[in-house]
Design a protein around this nucleic acid. Structure first.
Lengths: 138, 138
DNA sequence: TCAATAATTGCACTTCCGTTGCATACAATT
DNA sequence: AATTGTATGCAACGGAAGTGCAATTATTGA
């Protein structure tokens, strides 16, 4: 079990107080968060810092970006072994129309999608919308 | 073969010059368009009018909205028999990372996606990104 | 036909999100 | 300790989406 400090350093990210806090915030969340969510959690910090921190995490493959169709970009921590950059590893995301939360269905991989001749598939974004387990009451 | 006027009236949309023009513009396009695209095509008209016209078309199921991950909402005419509201009819969209255009692969339906117990799937958004046939040179 | 009503259009303005430039503060290295 | 590089905070910008209201246009009914 490596510490957060070790994880950041292994990705060539300088360890700062801000970054540790933001990492912990993301780790504690079970759902994908927007930048506003982060802002609300750290009201003393500046918008830009939070923005750039998350962007740094994204560049270094610590978080992945999620476009769930709400028009607002969300972010979630990559799990161990989450190779977001590899197409075949892409998992799908579920957006709840009721509570408006988006979660990673990490163990649900995206099926192979056929595209017409001449088209080259490099990336797939799949978002299922509906009602999540908490809201469906099941 | 029904005229555009008849189509609009059948959907309870009042026929105006603007709406006919915008409909023809959408019909002539082979790819999904942004509101900016529409604005550029009709520079004399007001943004708001174009915005509301497209929104009206969307509400009346004449166009469907596409979220291709660029962060900008795009729109495309529904084809004959395109029942966007019905989940099983959903087709997928292809976004070209080269020319930045998004096209409807109308005859490529989205496969059935399994979700965990307790989750209720109501809608699916599937965007494949890569290189389109024009840009791939094949 | 003309008034009354309803819907459409145009203008101004606002909000929200993402992003960048620059100055300052902090940390690492020699 | 001085230098260098990175992080942070502040201010501001730009694009896109959306709203309120006045003006214009179309429709309806007398």
């Amino acid at each position: 079990m490596q510490t957060i400090e070790q994880l950041l350093e292994s990705k060539n990210i300088r360890v700062t107080a801000m970054r540790l806090l933001i990492y912990k915030f993301l780790a504690q969340k079970q759902v994908a968060v927007t930048l506003s969510d982060v802002e609300n959690a750290f009201e003393k910090a500046d918008r830009t810092t939070l923005y750039r921190t998350v962007k740094t995490f994204e560049e270094k493959s610590i978080v992945h970006q999620i476009d769930d169709g709400t028009g607002i970009t969300k972010y979630a921590l990559c799990e161990n072994g989450c190779n977001c950059e590899i197409e075949t590893d892409l998992h799908l995301h579920f957006h709840c129309n009721n509570c408006n939360e988006t979660i990673c269905l990490t163990d649900h991989k995206i099926p192979q999608i056929k595209v017409p001749n001449g088209f080259i598939s490099e990336d797939v974004n799949l978002v299922v919308k509906g009602v999540c387990d908490k809201c469906s009451g099941q």
